[in-house]
Amino acid sequence: MPESPTTPASSPVEQLSAEDTKLVVLARGARARIGAAEGAAVRDQDGRTYAGADVSLPSLTLTALQLAVAAAVAAGATRLEAAAVVTEASTLDGAGHAVVRDLAADVPIHVAGPDGALLGTVRQ
C-alpha cells in the first residue's frame, strides 16, 4: 500500500541539519509551554522561525502548523524552507500538511515524537 502524504517516510531516518534540529527544539518548546498535544515550528525564506502549539477554543481550532504558518505569513513570509511538528500522533494531520503546502509544495515537514526523536519526514 503506498504511503499517504501525511505519513512520515518509514525508510531510514535522515540526519537533520542544525537548522532543522532547531525547528524540532522550538516545536517541543511551544508544545511544552502550555502542555499541548502538538507543537510546530517553520522557517521562512529569510531564515526567520515561528513556533506555535495547537489551539482548541469554542470558537477557534488550529493545528500547531496552522498557527506557526499563520504567524509567518502575518510577519511577511511568502515561502517556507522547512517545517517541523512534534506530536503524540503517529501521522501528520491533513490540515497541517495542507497549510505548509500552501506556501511550499516541496519543503520537508519533519515529524517528531514528544521526546524530539524524529519519526520521519514528509516531502510531498
Rank of each mutant, 00 (worst) to 15 (best):
L80R: 05
Y50H: 07
P8M: 00
R33N: 09
P8D: 02
A83L: 06
L67W: 01
Y50Q: 01
A40M: 02
V100Q: 08
A30H: 02
A72V: 07
G113C: 07
A82W: 01
A40L: 02
T7R: 11
E14T: 10
D44S: 05
A68L: 04
E14G: 14
A98T: 13
A36G: 06
G96W: 01
L60A: 11
L67I: 12
G96Y: 02
G35N: 09
Y50L: 06
T78R: 13
A30E: 03
A18I: 11
E19P: 09
V111T: 12
A30G: 05
Q15H: 11
K22P: 04
Q66L: 07
V111P: 09
A95Q: 15
T6F: 09
A27Y: 04
I109E: 07
G52V: 01
H110L: 12
P108F: 07
E38S: 01
P5M: 04
A18Q: 14
V25N: 09
A98W: 03
R48E: 04
Q66R: 05
R123S: 12
S4P: 12
R79P: 04
D54I: 01
S59P: 05
V13A: 13
A77M: 05
R101M: 12
T21Y: 06
H97F: 14
R33F: 02
T121A: 13
P108V: 05
Y50D: 03
A84Y: 04
V86N: 05
S4W: 14
G116N: 10
A82R: 00
Q45I: 05
A18M: 07
E3H: 06
D46T: 07
A104T: 10
V42Y: 00
Q45S: 12
T78G: 13
G94A: 15
R79H: 14
V122Y: 04
R79T: 13
L103H: 07
D102R: 12
H97V: 09
E81I: 02
V13M: 05
P58F: 03
A70V: 01
P12E: 13
L119A: 14
T91N: 13
L16M: 09
